[in-house]
């Protein structure tokens, strides 16, 4: 798994870099600089989340995850995933290691999809900020519609994966 990722992304990066370099040297360096800066910006939140997951994994036993988020958790699992996912608006890249861990520990694809989608699209904590931009009606409506969309995504993912 780890090495196939390295291989695919490495190959893709190599080809793009070469192509870009042939077309325009300056732009390529600028792109590298930009990419580097973005990587640096996500590095500390990413490391923090990895630390948090490492600790959680130690304290939360696998049977517990299977019971509440696994194949037999039904709507209950959906509810937990949607609730936790909706509280905060976390950028996707940070939540993926967590999602992968949950899957490994026995959570279903459907539950993980609901969790991921609500995490990215529904944010109760950031709602006050959102209201400032869109007003109360539109902000609440957007969150509500996206919550429903997330549950539909979860149902389909559970069915198709």
């Amino acid at each position: 798994m780890v090495f196939s990722n390295t291989f695919i992304f490495g190959l893709l990066t190599g080809v793009s870099l070469l192509l870009s370099f042939v077309l325009d040297r300056e732009k390529t360096f600028l792109g590298l600089k930009k990419g580097g800066r973005m990587l640096f910006n996500i590095l500390h939140p990413f490391l923090n989340i990895l630390i948090l997951i490492s600790i959680m994994l130690f304290f939360i036993p696998e049977p517990l995850i299977v019971r509440y988020l696994g194949a037999n958790s039904g709507w209950y699992g959906f509810g937990i995933a949607a609730f936790i996912g909706s509280i905060t608006l976390i950028p996707g890249f940070i939540s993926y290691p967590l999602a992968a861990t949950l899957l490994q520990q026995g959570a279903t694809y459907a539950v993980v999809a609901v969790f991921m989608t609500t995490m990215m699209m529904v944010g109760v904590v950031t709602l006050p900020l959102e209201i400032k931009y869109f007003g109360k009606k539109a902000a609440i409506l957007r969150n509500f519609l996206n919550l429903i969309a997330a549950i539909i995504i979860g149902i389909f993912m559970g069915w198709l994966m």
């Binding site: 390295t6 695919i8 893709l12 390529t28 990419g35 580097g36």
Partner: peptide
């Protein structure tokens, strides 16, 4: 093992 590669692509 793969994130740094990804950010090079994003930068480009």
């Amino acid at each position: 093992s793969f994130i740094p590669f990804l950010f090079i692509i994003i930068g480009l």
